[in-house]
């Protein structure tokens, strides 16, 4: 089940996008799933095995998120 990271603003999404790219962690910028939030803009979609690494980057990089969400079904 993929993990979606959502953000208060596009800037935060871009921050994590950049950090993940620099760390060589596979990810995608996708529209925020309606089930998670009504915000427009981006979520970062990750494979579940990358969640811990992404959380570490969020902490070390001071990225503000509105949480990590698991949402199925396609992996």
């Amino acid at each position: 089940m993929p993990v979606f990271v959502v953000f208060p603003s596009t800037h935060e999404a871009m921050s994590l996008d950049r950090l993940l790219t620099q760390a060589g962690i596979d990810h995608e910028l996708v529209p925020v799933p309606r089930e998670i939030s009504a915000s427009c803009g981006f979520a970062v979609r990750l494979r579940p095995e990358h969640e811990a690494a992404a959380r570490a980057l969020v902490d070390s990089g001071g990225v503000r998120t509105e949480g990590f969400h698991r949402l199925g079904p396609d992996a």
């Binding site: 871009m14 950049r18 529209p31 925020v32 427009c40």
Partner: peptide
């Protein structure tokens, strides 16, 4: 606004 690839590319430019 949007969540597609051209939107992401533009957001990267601003970032």
């Amino acid at each position: 606004r949007s969540g597609h690839r051209l939107s992401a590319a533009a957001a990267r430019v601003v970032f």
